[in-house]
Amino acid sequence: MRPFSYIVAGSVQEAVAALHEHGRDARVLAGGTDLLVEWRHPGARVPRVVVDISRIESLRDISLEGRDVLLGPLTTHAELIRSGVIRSEAAFLASAASTIGSPQIRNRGTLGGNIMNGAACADTVPPLIALGARVTLSSVDGERDCHLSGFYNKPYTTVANPNELLTQVRFPALPRGTKSAFTKLGRRNALSISRLSVAAVVAVDETGVITDARIVPGAAQTVWKRAMEAEKILIGNPPSVALFAEAGRVVSGVLIRETGRRWSTEYKEPVIAALVRRTLEKCFAVND
């Protein structure tokens, strides 16, 4: 790893001041599970200044503000899984976190790092987009809020400026009775990045008709998007396996329209459809 100077930020103020001072030469370090892997490669761009934010206790909270769930970016995946708030207000976010890496990675890797790294296979992002999450970016110039859905330009690239720190993730808790699920397909049963994944949210009214549906495929597109076309065909209909299968076909049709047919489409086309159907079915299975 090439040498750098190391700054421990004791507070958000100190962190943003350091980022302001060093601009593009600086990089924020949280759990380091993405950065250390990146930095040890010979050709890596190791920053001149590393700003370690891992000691800023105020960025670690999980709390409820009215019906809004607030998450500090330093929340680790392990903490997400253990959190009662997350389990009751956004269960599928906890399931997504539980599929990440290994216990060691989940003990260290943070939500903020997962979001800011922005890999197409980042597992917490599809549920967060389905939740309509917003993120707060702070800098010496103040704060701004962004919708996570508009946050990425392409994999590994966000709209955040180098002098900005992610300081909060916020989303409305799922309304009572709304169901959510996350499905991840990996090559093995642990330590496996998403080959494909799907996050879904479904709500049904007293008459048994779907009133809300949100579907976000993961590791499938250059940027995450809700599959609106598929969501539309669900709304207003009673849930059924056939309907879910149809939604799956629509999702895979849209993906192919966007990415074009490639040599790997043969596999992705049926599989993403199946994963969408299964995730919707899972919403209605007994909650785990």
């Binding site: 490669h41 494909l196 590791a219 990415t259 040599w263 790997s264």
Partner: peptide, 28 residues
Amino acid sequence: LRRPGPRGSALKDDGQSLPDLSCKIRPE
């Protein structure tokens, strides 16, 4: 899955290395 490749090449498999679809944790 076979990535289209020149003749004389070994077996090609999508494997774990499809840049646009499956995904790498690290960019480089």
